[in-house]
Design a protein around this nucleic acid. Structure first.
Lengths: 73, 73
DNA sequence: TGCGAAATCACAATATATTGTGAGTTATGA
DNA sequence: TCATAACTCACAATATATTGTGATTTCGCA
C-alpha cells in the first residue's frame, strides 16, 4: 500500500457511491484541496484525515503482516 | 481502527521483534518522539511516517469495506 | 461542437507534525 | 538496593499538511 494505491481506492469508492469530490469533502469534514491531493496520490495525509475519509466511504484500515509480493521475487 | 489501536499494534509488534523504541525509530528513519507519540495513540502521524514504520516492522496497511461491529448493534 | 459540472491548480494563511536536545520517570536485572 | 536501560516528557525550531479563495482545465453529455 502506497499513497497512489490509496488514492485510487478512495477515488474508485467515491465514484462507486456516486458522489463528487466537494460532497465527499464536506461529508468527511475535510478541505477539497486535501481530498484532491489524496486521490491523486500526491498527498501525505495525516492519520485522522485519512480515517475520516475512509469512514465516510464505508471503508476501514487494517494492519496485517506483509504478504509475499511475487511481482518482486 | 483508530490511533490507539494502531499504537498498540505497533508497540506489540516491536516488542515481539525485540527492539526498543530508539532502534525502531532509527531503522524507520523517524524521530524518537514521533514513534513514542504514535505508540501511545496520542499521535496523528502522516501517512508516510506510518507506512515506513509499518514496513520496518514487516507490517502493511490494507483497506477494505467496513465490517459489521456487533458490539455497536 | 458547445455547455455545465467536475476536477485540478496556485496562492497565502494557519494549524500541526516532526525533529533534536536534555531532563525526568519507570522498568528490569544483578 | 543499586545500576542501567527503556521509556516518557517539555521545549523551541523547522517542515509540512490543511484550508479557503479564485482561476483554469478536463470531463460527460446533448
Amino acid at each position: 500500500m502506497n499513497a497512489k494505491e490509496l488514492g485510487n481506492i478512495i477515488k474508485e469508492r467515491r465514484k462507486h457511491l456516486g458522489v463528487n469530490q466537494q460532497t465527499l469533502a464536506d461529508l468527511a469534514g475535510v478541505g477539497l484541496n486535501t481530498l484532491v491531493a489524496i486521490e491523486r496520490g500526491e498527498g501525505n495525509p495525516q492519520l485522522s484525515t485519512l480515517l475520516t475519509i475512509l469512514d465516510t466511504l464505508g471503508l476501514q484500515m487494517d494492519i496485517c503482516l506483509k504478504t509475499l509480493d511475487y511481482e518482486t521475487v
